[in-house]
Amino acid sequence: MTLSLNDIKRVAKLARIEISETDAQQNLVRLSGIFDLIEQMRAVDTQGIKPMSHSQDMVQRLREDIVTESDQRTLFQSVAPQIEDGYYLVPKVIE
């Protein structure tokens, strides 16, 4: 699979990352390099091998259903650009 400049721009748009033409070009080169590595791995015969969903062969630990967190709103909101009545304020977004 080859990446196009449009793919880069599309992924950037989906991630809401502003990207200049130059950056997009550079990212295309870098990401294409990663895709080449993936192509090399795809050449390995993996038939009969179950895909892993995680790189480590370990099992998820579970926690008990207990409330352990207290209200830290004041602390968290001290670094927020804009707050009001306990809400975080962001530019209006309605689809």
Binding site: Y87, Y88, L89, V90, P91, K92, I94
Partner: peptide
């Protein structure tokens, strides 16, 4: 309620 902004409650 936020004069043109959007309020977020998480």
């Amino acid at each position: 309620e936020f004069h043109g902004m959007t309020g977020i409650d998480l």
